[in-house]
Write a protein that binds this DNA or RNA. Structure first.
Lengths: 324, 324
DNA sequence: CTGTTAGCGCCTTCAT
DNA sequence: ATGAAGGCGCTAACAG
């Protein structure tokens, strides 16, 4: 069933059908006839053929490192929701942090003429090393979420990780906590910015920073609590670089008999769904992954629509629940 | 840059270029000339134009309920990895469990002529209620992961949920547990099969089944423990329908002073990363989401290639750690 | 093996 | 407002 079949059965020309499909004004009488035939056959125009002409298949790609990590899942989720509500289809690409793999994905996307690309995370800045790739990407609308890509049609949206932890730490200080330690996960750019926020806040209050570090995500909370116990460091609050780390810490310290939120305050980072998996519910820094993702999608569509776009930066906020 | 430009500069006809692009035998001399021009301009044929002719854009859709839930993320991840390694692009659709939304997605996919669809989870069985939708889907290759769709070109791969829980419950019984209760999340086909496995095992041992139920995922474990406490039911083991539920239960009961794995055994379901977020580490039923997803992708490509395909079923296994 | 030609399904001038 | 015709970039016959 194609536009010719519809035209024939409705007794009009294909261009009239095309006009009907594109909401251009045609005689009401013809409109009715076409409408009936379209409904009768459940006809839907081929996006591929449309794409061949219009150069757009209403397709957008979201590049993430690993959809299995909740933070990226949330990013993909929010972007997908926004874009598909506006009639775009979304291709999610799991690059696994592999440069070659990422470039292969990009070639594949270029081949189908995606309308735009959203990169999630500063890790994709590595693309700036590849001139040839940048050249190919040069004219396609791009939004980089917390990163930056050096092409003509590219814009960025950032979130202020350092300020987020700084504010959360301040909050603990203002509550009267004096022995605030930090649980760090990994040592990425972003992770180090968070740590700096913690240090800045403590310095202002003339308190001594104490940092424990892990490269384990899932069992990281337990490992860090073990380190803490062995260190015999006194503590009345823990600032964590990740919700999952905080979750493990809360669970472990609860089992040891601590009253979380009373004997000791614990704050996570991400304001993810995991905050509700904690008991008591976890206070956490909201780094606005959903907002930045939604905004990424909106900005991308603005670029596509030829509107003016500027880089943006969002502040983190503190979501206070029960653990601090 | 299109096939005409390449042909002109290489001094051949477009069909020769087309043959070159499709790996058909042409004179080596011409091949070299074309190769050079293609390399010079980094020319890549338009998948859209190819799609218009060949009816395939090498595009496959994976439908999941919510990519933010680790189980579905793992499914999408594995399918994506398999498919994109074989040159297919993958569209991941988050339906959020909404029927209308799912159908809207399907329309969108049909419009771009996807080569096939993978449905993850028995929840998509609801489509069988919609005759019109089935009709539209009738000829497109479909794999249903743990479900079944009533169309001509549709096959299923199942994992034996019932057997998985049955075996796990048996394991508890054999350990000498006598007061085994069940924590159920939702009431989908799959969820009910799991419950049945539990009941079957108890019946064989002449034990009385006791079931608590929730529709909350994140805080579900706590809610169920509260229900349990209020019920004053005696218990020495809990079989849970989801790892996340088990995680909440472990955390909560630990805080109440129970020694998990000693006073009380707890088993989860999914063998997800969360098993390591529990303290002690969680024993869980492995429902082989990665295996079935990879296999789904392979089966889908078999259908597309016209090979013979049969439904498949995989057994669950029990991954014993420390919580039981 | 190579080139010519006719579509694939749609949108878009351009006359009418 | 409507219809005829050309073109989007490619593949697939069909001749040569």
């Amino acid at each position: 069933m194609n536009i010719y079949d519809i035209a024939k059965e409705a007794g009009v020309s294909i261009s009239t059908v095309s006009k009907y499909l594109n909401n251009k004004t045609i005689r009401p009488e013809l409109k009715t006839r076409i409408e009936e035939v379209v409904a009768k056959y459940d006809y839907v125009p081929s996006a591929i053929a449309q794409g061949l002409v219009s150069k757009s298949m209403k397709l957008v790609a979201v590049m993430v490192v690993d959809i299995q990590i909740s933070h990226y899942a949330a990013a993909a989720y929010a972007a997908d929701k926004t874009l598909s509500a506006l009639g775009y289809r979304v291709i999610i690409c799991n690059t696994l942090g592999d440069e070659e793999n990422s470039i292969k994905y990009l070639d594949s996307l270029l081949k189908i003429n995606v309308d735009g690309i959203i990169f999630v995370g500063s890790i994709f800045n590595f693309l700036n090393k590849y001139e040839k790739v940048l050249e190919k990407l040069n004219n396609i609308p791009i939004i980089s979420n917390n990163g930056h890509i050096n092409t003509k049609n590219s814009y960025s949206i950032y979130v202020d990780d350092k300020q987020g932890v700084y504010d959360a730490t301040k909050y603990l200080i203002n509550k009267g906590r004096k022995k605030i330690i930090y649980f760090q996960y990994l040592s990425t750019t972003s992770s180090n910015l968070k740590l700096q926020g913690y240090k800045d806040a403590l310095k202002e209050a003339n308190l001594e920073p104490i940092v424990f570090h892990t490269d384990e995500l899932m069992s990281g909370g337990f490992e860090l609590v073990k380190q803490l116990n062995q260190s015999q460091v006194e503590v009345d609050a823990i600032m964590c670089g990740e919700d999952i780390i905080a979750l493990g810490a809360i669970s472990d310290l609860s089992a040891q008999g601590y009253k979380i939120g009373k004997d000791i305050d614990i704050i996570g980072f991400n304001a993810s769904l995991f905050t509700n998996l904690a008991n008591p519910k976890m206070t956490s820094v909201n780094n606005k992954i959903e907002e930045t993702s939604v905004r990424s999608a909106e900005m991308l569509l603005d670029i596509i629509d030829g509107k003016e776009v500027h880089d943006e930066i969002l502040p983190c906020s503190l979501v206070i629940k029960e653990s601090a």
